[in-house]
Amino acid sequence: MTVDERLTAKPVATPVGEGLKAAFRTHPAGVAIITASTPEGPVGLTASSVASVAVDPAAIVFSVTRATGSAGAILGAETFVVHLVDDEHATLAQSFAISGSERFTPEQGWATLPTGEPHLPEARAALRCRPIQTVAVGSSTVVIAEVVEVLSGVSSRPLVYLDRRFHALPTDTDH
């Protein structure tokens, strides 16, 4: 089997794959909500795979598990916004993690940037990005994106994803 065939093959549960899932289940990850504007309307999803890659050019990386629905729309967008969210957005992050759940309601606090993307002004930071490269890995797609604008928001207690649940991290003022 070639490298390309291995990277695009349908995933099969293996002991190593199951071990990897178990290992990362206990490795905390930051939480982000990624949004984009499409001709059909706004789309979004929750991601715990966002990481910085470089500062010159400013770049991040994340992965999505399929190229359909919201993930497919984000993969096809010219630009998108990666919202780094805090504890008060745990319910919103959960909503964006479940297909078909309510999204982009006025009660959720969404606005629209002048460039058209959905924006959560209350997020700790919002990174407006454009994709540089995508790489298919099995049923996932890794996205490398250039950050073209950083919008600062309100900082609170950081939110992490651990063992299939969201958790707030204490801040210096939580003693």
Rank of each mutant, 00 (worst) to 15 (best):
G19I: 03
L113F: 05
S37A: 15
F104D: 10
V143T: 11
L20Y: 14
G30D: 01
R157A: 14
R66C: 13
T134R: 12
E146R: 13
V61W: 00
A93W: 04
H175N: 13
S152V: 02
S155I: 01
P28F: 00
P57R: 04
S139M: 00
P131C: 01
V16I: 14
R66G: 15
T171W: 06
A9D: 12
R164L: 02
V64A: 08
V43Y: 06
M1Q: 09
V50H: 00
D174H: 09
A29F: 00
G30F: 04
A125T: 12
L84R: 04
T26F: 07
V137M: 07
R157F: 10
A59E: 12
A123I: 05
T8L: 08
A136Y: 01
D174T: 09
V154Y: 03
I60F: 04
D163Q: 12
T79L: 01
T134F: 00
P106Q: 03
Q94A: 13
A73D: 00
T2G: 15
V142F: 00
P42L: 01
L75P: 13
T141V: 10
A97R: 07
V43N: 04
V55C: 06
A13E: 13
T79H: 07
F80C: 05
G116K: 08
P106G: 08
S155F: 03
R103D: 11
V64W: 00
G30W: 00
D172H: 14
Q133C: 08
F24H: 09
I34F: 05
V147A: 04
S139G: 11
G41H: 05
V150Q: 07
A145K: 05
L84V: 09
A126P: 13
T65C: 08
G153H: 07
T35P: 14
V148F: 08
V135F: 09
H167V: 09
L7D: 10
V55S: 12
G72D: 02
G116H: 06
E18V: 12
T173N: 06
I144M: 06
S37F: 00
L162V: 14
G69M: 00
V137G: 11
S52D: 07
V61N: 04
G100Q: 02
R157K: 13
A36Q: 10
F166N: 11
V3Q: 08
T112V: 15
Y161F: 15
V147G: 08
G100P: 11
R157Y: 04
T35W: 03
G76F: 00
T26K: 11
E107H: 13
A47L: 01
E146Y: 05
P170H: 05
V3R: 07
V142I: 15
A36T: 13
W110D: 12
M1Y: 06
K21R: 15
P158L: 02
H167I: 08
V154S: 11
I60M: 06
A97S: 14
V16H: 10
E149K: 13
T46M: 00
S139C: 05
G19C: 05
A77K: 01
S95G: 12
H167D: 07
V53K: 03
D56M: 07
R130Y: 03
R128C: 11
F96T: 10
S48G: 14
E102S: 15
R66V: 10
V148W: 07
P158Y: 00
E122V: 15
F62N: 10
G72S: 04
A67E: 13
H89L: 04
R165K: 14
T134P: 10
P170I: 01
K10L: 13
G116E: 02
T171Q: 06
T173P: 06
I98C: 10
